[in-house]
Write a protein that binds this DNA or RNA. Structure first.
Lengths: 134, 134
DNA sequence: ACTTAAAATGTTATATTATAACATTACATT
DNA sequence: AATGTAATGTTATAATATAACATTTTAAGT
């Protein structure tokens, strides 16, 4: 059975909480420093919680920034594939959904006789807010 | 004026050479160990060469693997955006080109009122060779 | 309830990836 | 030759992530 957020362990909940209350992606050591009062003392405890949360799809990693973000989509199937819009000005991140991405990438891969399994897409630019300001 | 490969410096040439002769992406410290006989002694020398090569578009970074690959496209405009097919079995990497990716991502971004600047796409799966073997 | 296997934890140490700081050298353009 | 920019060399250190191992918690079956 899939693991729901209800039966997360203490450490996992602690890490997920801080990611969910953050408006931007957080780095592992930022998470660590922020929750040391809650009994988490070592990097490994953070990384282990992150690994689990990523595995069940509640958290995604932004590879180009070594940072982590909570998934806001209820039934997000991004356990494997992820697609983000990343603002270069304010570092905010929006997750793209929709299977059109999946089918588009499958096709691109097929053209090269490549068997698509999953993907990671990071689009950089300016978010709506920052577009207006500049 | 754009910097062509002819006027690369010694360190830059050394690093580019090893990347071009590799069949897979290489990690920075792998590069370092492989070229210590050529006078490069410190990580920083490798990273500086990589930075320059990336800047001029001769090398791209595979973010999810912290590794670097030489660009095989003559007039590659991927100084900013990159798109890869990455084989999970043999770690080989193929770079995708074509502006259809650009226009597709622009559209995806626009749907979210996001001003597209560049992207990084990593598609994971099985390359043609490994598909046949499995 | 007891057993047991799997998962999670706590802890210390260490590996891996990348940059800071600063003095020096090469080199193209005046 | 003078000058400014880029590149280099070197040492130290920052930032990111995992190894190893002993212990505890949890969940599932009997």
């Amino acid at each position: 059975m899939a693991i729901a957020s209800e039966n997360l362990t203490k450490n996992q909940k602690t890490v997920l909480d801080i990611l969910e209350s953050a408006s931007e992606p957080l780095k592992a050591y930022t998470i660590l420093f922020d929750i040391q009062k809650k009994g988490i003392k070592s990097p490994l405890q953070v990384y282990r919680a992150l690994d689990k949360l990523i595995e069940i799809g509640k958290v995604h990693k932004i590879e180009s920034r070594n940072s982590y973000v909570a998934c806001k989509h209820e039934g997000c199937n991004a356990k494997t594939s992820t697609s983000f819009l990343i603002c270069e000005n304010c570092d905010s991140v929006t997750e793209l959904t929709g299977n059109n991405l999946f089918s588009y990438f499958s096709k691109q891969a097929e053209k090269n006789n490549f068997n698509y399994k999953k993907h990671n897409l990071e689009i950089f630019g300016l978010c709506e807010n920052c577009k207006l300001k500049n």
